[in-house]
Simulated assay, not measured.
Amino acid sequence: MDSRHGQGQGHDGGDSAQSTADLTAFVQNLLQQMQSRFQTMSDSIISKIDEMGSRIDDLEKSIGELVKEAGVDSPPSPPTSSQGQLPPK
């Protein structure tokens, strides 16, 4: 048992340091790839949100124009009768 335990302590010191350096480089590369992909996805999401905002603005303008064409000055007010209201608690 003692012979196996002592294997990692002798001449393998340089191999262990190289293995640690390789692992560190691999992890750094992996983290850089993840960061790059995250940034790409983030940029894409922000672009789509901006596009949706623009489309909503266009839709609001179109609705406003339709309301003007229909001759309606303001949106309908909520019903004042008890039919459209919730009963008191």
Score class of each variant (00 low, 15 high):
67 V>P: 09
3 S>P: 00
80 T>C: 04
44 S>D: 12
48 K>R: 10
49 I>L: 09
22 D>F: 05
65 E>G: 02
21 A>I: 07
60 E>I: 02
77 S>G: 12
8 G>A: 05
50 D>M: 11
24 T>Q: 09
56 I>M: 05
7 Q>E: 09
29 N>T: 11
7 Q>P: 00
20 T>F: 12
63 I>V: 15
69 E>P: 01
48 K>A: 07
1 M>K: 03
61 K>Y: 05
9 Q>H: 10
81 S>Q: 10
79 P>G: 07
89 K>C: 03
67 V>D: 08
44 S>W: 00
4 R>M: 02
18 Q>P: 01
50 D>T: 12
55 R>A: 07
28 Q>P: 01
10 G>S: 04
60 E>M: 05
37 R>D: 13
5 H>M: 09
34 M>K: 09
84 G>H: 02
21 A>Q: 15
40 T>D: 11
43 D>M: 07
41 M>H: 01
10 G>A: 08
45 I>T: 07
21 A>K: 15
80 T>M: 12
32 Q>P: 04
56 I>V: 05
11 H>K: 06
7 Q>C: 00
85 Q>F: 01
23 L>N: 15
84 G>V: 01
81 S>H: 10
9 Q>I: 08
65 E>R: 10
57 D>F: 03
58 D>E: 14
75 P>M: 06
24 T>F: 03
16 S>E: 15
53 G>L: 07
52 M>K: 06
5 H>E: 13
23 L>T: 14
25 A>R: 07
56 I>H: 03
71 G>P: 08
17 A>F: 04
64 G>I: 01
29 N>P: 00
45 I>N: 00
11 H>F: 01
88 P>N: 08
55 R>E: 09
12 D>R: 11
53 G>I: 01
49 I>Q: 03
78 P>A: 11
69 E>K: 15
50 D>R: 11
7 Q>L: 06
42 S>P: 01
68 K>C: 03
6 G>K: 14
12 D>L: 13
4 R>D: 06
21 A>D: 15
22 D>V: 00
89 K>H: 09
28 Q>H: 04
33 Q>V: 11
74 S>A: 06
53 G>N: 14
62 S>Q: 09
60 E>C: 02
74 S>G: 03
40 T>Y: 00
29 N>E: 12
14 G>T: 06
11 H>A: 05
55 R>H: 03
54 S>F: 08
23 L>A: 15
35 Q>E: 13
70 A>D: 11
44 S>E: 06
27 V>H: 06
4 R>F: 01
34 M>I: 15
82 S>N: 08
10 G>N: 09
82 S>K: 10
29 N>S: 06
14 G>L: 10
